[in-house]
Write a protein that binds this DNA or RNA. Sequence first.
DNA 1: CCAATAGTGTCTATCAGACATTATCTA
DNA 2: TAGATAATGTCTGATAGACACTATTGG
Lengths: 237, 237
Amino acid sequence: MNEAEFLQQYNQKAFDTPNVSVDSVLFTYHEQQLKVLMVNRANYPDKGLWGLPGGFVNLQKDKTLEDTALRKLAKKTGVKPPYLEQIYTVGNDHRDKRAWSITVCYSALIAHQYCKVQVNSVNDAKWLTLDEVSNITLAFDHQQLIDAAHQRLKQKALYSIVPAFVLPEQFTLPELQHVHEVIIGKSLQKKSFRRRIEQAELLIDTGEKRGEGGRPATLYKLKSNAGQHTFIRNLEN
Amino acid sequence: MNEAEFLQQYNQKAFDTPNVSVDSVLFTYHEQQLKVLMVNRANYPDKGLWGLPGGFVNLQKDKTLEDTALRKLAKKTGVKPPYLEQIYTVGNDHRDKRAWSITVCYSALIAHQYCKVQVNSVNDAKWLTLDEVSNITLAFDHQQLIDAAHQRLKQKALYSIVPAFVLPEQFTLPELQHVHEVIIGKSLQKKSFRRRIEQAELLIDTGEKRGEGGRPATLYKLKSNAGQHTFIRNLEN
DNA sequence: CCAATAGTGTCTATCAGACATTATCTA
DNA sequence: TAGATAATGTCTGATAGACACTATTGG
């Protein structure tokens, strides 16, 4: 038997396979706080509980796992987030009552403005702060997935400017610093924060300014590769 | 319908699901080089090509994805590696000719001594250097998985002593430094390397020494939590 | 003694933390 | 001018890089 013959007689359903879903932790920054998009489950199991936006891989619609993540996010928000990163995959025989189940967990970042309308028009989806999330019971092991995504984002805030993706395209340095502070959970030295970003040349000065009360702050946007940059030395943690 | 009724009538095979496999990049250190355990594929597809040890999740035998990884590794090496870490998950419609396929990729580390016998007794498995691996055609996308695992290990070598798990329980500092150098691909300052390990108090001095030619080196073993420690500042890269 | 390998001393360079100071806006 | 917020100057401290030096073994 050669490979062609083998493939022809191969029956995909010869073995039991786990259920495969993709769940995403979509973060944004609003009202000085980090928030996560949560969805109220319409179906069993865990019907009525809040959980992450996600669902099963659709072999017809999705070419890749990222497609699944983006398709499910687009269904709830109407947009494609500018940052998407795989966190990790959990798979075991007890996380889902129905079957041996796997979920591939992604983390995504988006500016609140860019999907505000769509989320507000759907009453089964809403933004919750991490504190609110940890005070309610979530579906499946979604609390752990959120914690892991938050931990990863925290690390990134210490050695990259990935958190900038929760802001709109143009933002100020004080805004960005505050985002980092909220994610890390402690305040940072203004000078340290600015110095490293300036040295790494990660931002483009748009020339515009934005002021509210005091001296107007310079508006910047990210250089195209800014998300990839990692500092060799972390901020204190 | 309540949840109990829902679960009773739920048919797992109502939807097509992807195939799910787990593949592991098992690294070791031998003859001054980093090596990866490769397996010659006995079956189609890609029969006869070298690939990573791994296979499909078995819903009866495995309670978790890690169980699958360890079961497949034990089958080839007879042992359980002291370090196992998930790298990432690839899933798409073209990586496996048979079907929409997912693989969860793990990286594992083990001392060469601890599984030498078992590997040598199986003629379909052998240790290859990373250079050898990149000069042959591998099954599926296994070359990419190996590259990703190597990249991750490289990062860990810059900010942790995780690479110590490719050495036996007792090892010397010159040995450990060389392992790091091989993984990173460049030489390191002896003083820098030793200073940070001493300050972090990650090792236990066994009191024993081992010599070959010159002054004997002190034998150390890892403190139990040494694998978790991360330095706040990276070695140069 | 020499050769070889292990391990230390010490200077410099870099960069984060701390915090005072200056700059630029509105009312 | 005062108040607010943005941005900079500059000192200190921690730690990695460089490299010369000392220590301990065998022959």
